[in-house]
Nucleic acid binder design. Sequence first.
DNA 1: TCTGGGGTCCTAGGACCC
DNA 2: TCTGGGGTCCTAGGACCC
Length: 391
Amino acid sequence: MFLHVDLDAFYASVEQLDNPQLKGKPVIIGALPGTRRGVVSTCSYEARQYGVHSAMPVEAAYRLCPQGVFIPPRMKRYREKSREVMAVFYDFSPDVQQISIDEAFIDITGTERLFGPPETTARTLKAAVREHTGLTVSAGLAANRYVAKIASGMSKPDGFCHVPPGDEAQFIEQLPLEKIWGLGDKTRKKMHDAGLYTVSAVKNVSLELLEHILGTAGAMFVYNAVRGIDPGICTPVPLSRSISTEQTYEFSLYDRYIIDTALMELAGTVMFRMLNEGWHSRTVCVKLRYDDFTTHTIQETVDIPVATEQALFTRASRLFDKKYTGGGIRLLGVGALNLEPESTPVQQELFDDGNKKLQTVERTVLQLKNKHPDLTITKARLLSRPETDTE
DNA sequence: TCTGGGGTCCTAGGACCC
DNA sequence: TCTGGGGTCCTAGGACCC
């Protein structure tokens, strides 16, 4: 049996917990009103009553709910709180699979002797989370992860939904297509275009026809999902890893020097994480989004992993040049793909052209940053930009 | 409502090799 | 000569999720 547990309006709830005056008020986490190009990250249930929701531009949220309390995210605090919650989960099972900052799957198979029947375990766990962290969760209980995941979303907030073994198909059948996890706007539109509007309609269609509409992988996914069979969306071990960062600018970028400065900053962020987490990468990626929202990416794989911030920046800048066709840029991103553990043996450069020295400098700075988190060490060129705390 | 940021996975095509 | 099939790696874009 699997539990899927999901924290209710997580960021907003943490703010209300840390500042009890916010309890019962519409709390909106995201960019502050007046910020161009900012969106809502999470909002409290009080704010949802005004029609505010995640991913909505903050300006729209402000129009709907001007009395709302707008708060920029404090990711460090949320991560801390997330760890507390996960620790409670581990009290119930060694098999906890965290899938985002605010949700996890917990395999509670064979824990009856300790905690009683699964339903009782679920309720005990909900109470334990509340007692130890002050937060409420919604839980879904089912014989597979996929159904548990959908079940947890059924009775938010502070909800619990149990789908007994054998009832999976029946449970899924009565849901609107919007509730099918993994089936987004674009795919739903394709289904509609094919005349399919309900789960049972989709079930009546052959796998071959689905393949025609969605392609092989998509068809297989939907075919299983609508039958309550786990389509295997949550692979326990991810096949690849990447680290990336991106930034939407309030005012679009045109100037080449400013663009390079921005790329340098992004490269710094990515390299900092890569070194800290002990990864290597041979593939660098640059993302650019123009004013008209068209988005392009360009990536390049090399034989020798990128070892320094400087090298990452140089590659990023070159890739940018290759792709850029002129015009205003609202977003820039830099990423490292196909990450491998640092210990993976790699082809070494035959001659040291100053890289070693640079690497030493950068690693020293990294150690300083880690030792003194409050200390800001940065390139002079990046000085004018304020520090931000975003995910 | 002019649309964030960090991720993963899939697809289709191309290069290259045997 | 106008051409097979399998396999791997890489690339760009797109869909989706929280």
